[in-house]
Nucleic acid binder design. Structure first.
Lengths: 196, 196
DNA sequence: GAGAAAAGAGCACGATCGGTCACCTTGGTC
DNA sequence: GACCAAGGTGACCGATCGTGCTCTTTTCTC
């Protein structure tokens, strides 16, 4: 059982890597098994189907995302510094996690947005929660607190900048992607704090 | 030849539809052929390979994008109204073009960003040009004109809002996605015009 | 209307896909 | 050290993948 959990983790790691590069729905069980040093049928002792493996990949990636982006910010009190930490960690996450293939959550979002099923359901639920978290953080930014609509608008922009950063960096290969995103975000923080 | 061009167009239309839903690299020649009422081998009289077909799909989609988004704006003089038209048409494009599968250019961007080849090259080149076009439009927004850096930052934000709109609408199924994007964009126009 | 070229059908190929089954090997427990 | 379940292998299944081949039908041109 100890052994089993270790190989399961190795499988998930490799599967996540391939999913980030080729797409979550296009990972090949054969290739994953080979890379891990297993036979294809050996995989099925850890996951009852390909979809179950994809789901596990998504779950562990979501957990890693929370640990990497949210956890460090959670130690700070609500406010501007916390939001800045979230944004910085978020950008860094999308840069270093699966460095070759890019952020899995982002590519999976584009991939799953029109393919109903448990994968989409899971990602949608988490992303909705994440966006509400951001909204809550913005609400706590000013005194008196922002209106719901203002906070939603700010959270929407914050998230948009992460998407923009990702596209500029990966498809356009723009070396200034991060600087642009940071500048846009700090403008957003400034005018939100001013109460625009 | 007249006949051939017609079926070629039908093939491209169906292939684009499937590419938007399933992903550009996962379109099935069999399914495309069947949907068009052709045999699989019949496809190869119009495209020498699957990749050639994907490339043609991307090319025609890019042309349609330009015709739908840019052409109406090009009739207006540079300035705020033109930028507003571009943004509105862009959002509408992503909503109505391949309504079931979403904007092909967006999903293809996420799909191709780590897969070198002519497909990625084409999309990257066009998207870079498009972003420069937006930057140019922003430059012409104020008198005196915006600095390069300011215009780039504005274009980056505009594009980001389209990405955010797309994700909110399709994955999160947020009914307010368009309203949020429009609000964010008009704020951007306002403060850019003010010279922030 | 004859002839050539284009459009398309049908079949088969090798590869790969996710998945199953029977069998063997290892590791942990009493 | 016996035992049993967990971990893992290899062969194999049917389906589908992109693609090449030969052959027939349609369409355009003179």
């Amino acid at each position: 059982m100890r052994k089993g959990e270790a190989t399961r983790a190795r499988i998930l790691q490799e599967a996540a890597r391939q999913a980030a590069v080729r797409g979550l729905s296009v990972v090949s069980l054969n290739d994953v098994a080979e890379a891990v040093g297993l036979s294809k049928s050996g995989l099925f002792k850890h996951f009852e189907s390909k979809e179950a493996m994809q789901l596990a990949v998504l779950e562990t990636t979501l957990e890693r995302f929370t640990a990497f982006v949210w956890a460090p910010a959670a130690e700070l009190p609500p406010g501007r510094a916390r939001l800045e930490t979230i944004f910085e960690r978020w950008l860094t996450w999308s840069e270093v996690e699966n460095a070759e293939g890019g952020c899995l959550l982002m590519s999976a979002g584009a991939e799953l947005d029109d393919q109903p099923g448990p994968l989409r359901d899971l990602l949608q639920a988490q992303q909705r929660r994440w966006l509400r978290t951001l909204q809550r953080e913005f609400t706590a930014l000013t005194d008196p607190p922002l209106s719901d609509r203002q906070a939603r608008l700010a959270a929407f922009q914050m998230k948009s900048f992460v998407f923009g950063h990702n596209d500029n960096r990966r498809l356009l290969e723009d070396a200034d992607a991060r600087a642009l995103a940071e500048a846009a975000f700090h403008d957003l923080l400034d005018r939100t704090a001013r109460g625009d």
